[in-house]
Amino acid sequence: MDDATASAEKRMRLRYAGACRVCDATLPAKTEAVYDRESRTVRCLTHERDAPEPDTEVDIGEAGSSARREFDRRKAGREKRIRAKHPKLGGLILALSDDPQSTTAWATGAVGEERLGGRLNSLQSETCLVLHDRRVPGSRANIDHLAVTPTGVYVIDAKRYSGRPQLRVEGGLLRPRVERLIVGRRECTKLVDGVLKQVGMVSTTIGDQTPVHGVLCFVDADWPLIGGAFTTRDVQVLWPKRLQSTLTSPGTLDAQSIERVHRELARVLPSA
């Protein structure tokens, strides 16, 4: 430890509880520890200096895993309720009836995430690093996929809807402009709101220097042969093959920066 480091640190009894910046161990109030004035952090007395970050492999996660678990949970819960209510006929009732749409939607979503996840995995390189099914701390929400590329971070929401995605614009000169996302006959504008919320959270996590892009990727939609992709409120709406070309576009981030951002996102947003 050099003189400058020593002068910035002070051995003392903590007035408040904290955590060691090296090993993350809890340090209760009145514990003797080393306080760093510059970083305003503490460390255990057992650590002479900050330990280097271990060069561990990043857990990229498994696409669709949380949606698949939720489907299994709901399906098992329904079976348990029916068998409890109808001890003799429960098996027959289950054989002759289908799970409700609120349950099967989770299986449908899981398939869409799994298929898109496979495509994203095939793009993995030093200039395209991906993460799947990330948990947002303090929230019940998950982010389906993240991709870190030379052009920035892509927050990707996978959807397996039928019908053609369209952008409908209402208002204009005399009324406020309102953009609506329609897929087939389904009103899907709230999906854009969800992606924008995730983009904001990721932007806060990695700072303002790295661009963060929002994407809605419809896996089984009725896309036209020519054109079809569009952007609404800065969220790109497209299909898997078009997303692939977007993620492989050249940009300004180098491989080292991509790896750094990728590791930070994997740390802050653990696998679901």
Rank of each mutant, 00 (worst) to 15 (best):
T46I: 05
H47L: 03
E48F: 11
E48W: 09
R49N: 09
R49P: 06
R49I: 13
D50H: 11
P52L: 14
P52S: 12
P52Y: 11
P52K: 13
E53S: 10
E53A: 09
P54W: 12
P54M: 04
D55I: 01
T56L: 07
V58H: 10
V58P: 08
D59A: 15
I60V: 15
I60N: 13
I60F: 10
G61H: 03
G61V: 03
E62N: 13
E62R: 08
A63N: 14
A63E: 15
S65M: 14
A67P: 10
A67D: 09
R69A: 14
F71Q: 03
R73Q: 06
R73S: 11
R73E: 12
R74E: 04
R74M: 08
K75W: 02
K75F: 04
K75E: 03
K75S: 15
K75Y: 10
A76S: 05
A76W: 02
G77I: 05
G77N: 06
R78N: 06
R78D: 05
R78Q: 13
E79T: 01
K80E: 03
R81E: 06
I82A: 05
R83L: 07
A84Y: 00
K85E: 15
K85S: 13
K85I: 07
H86T: 03
H86R: 05
H86C: 04
P87F: 00
P87Q: 00
P87M: 00
K88F: 14
K88C: 08
K88D: 14
K88V: 14
L89T: 09
L89C: 11
G90W: 02
G91R: 03
L94S: 12
L94A: 04
A95W: 10
A95S: 14
A95H: 09
A95G: 14
S97Y: 08
S97I: 05
S97R: 14
D98N: 12
D99T: 07
D99R: 09
P100Q: 01
P100F: 00
S102T: 14
S102H: 06
T103S: 02
T103P: 00
T104I: 02
T104S: 10
T104D: 01
A107F: 00
A107N: 13
T108H: 11
T108Y: 07
T108W: 07
T108S: 14
G109M: 06
G109I: 02
G109L: 02
A110M: 02
V111I: 06
E114H: 12
R115H: 03
R115W: 03
R115M: 03
R119Q: 08
R119A: 11
N121P: 07
S122H: 07
S122R: 13
S122D: 09
L123W: 02
L123A: 09
L123M: 01
L123E: 05
T127D: 14
T127I: 08
C128M: 10
C128K: 06
L129Q: 15
L129H: 13
L129N: 10
V130L: 07
V130G: 05
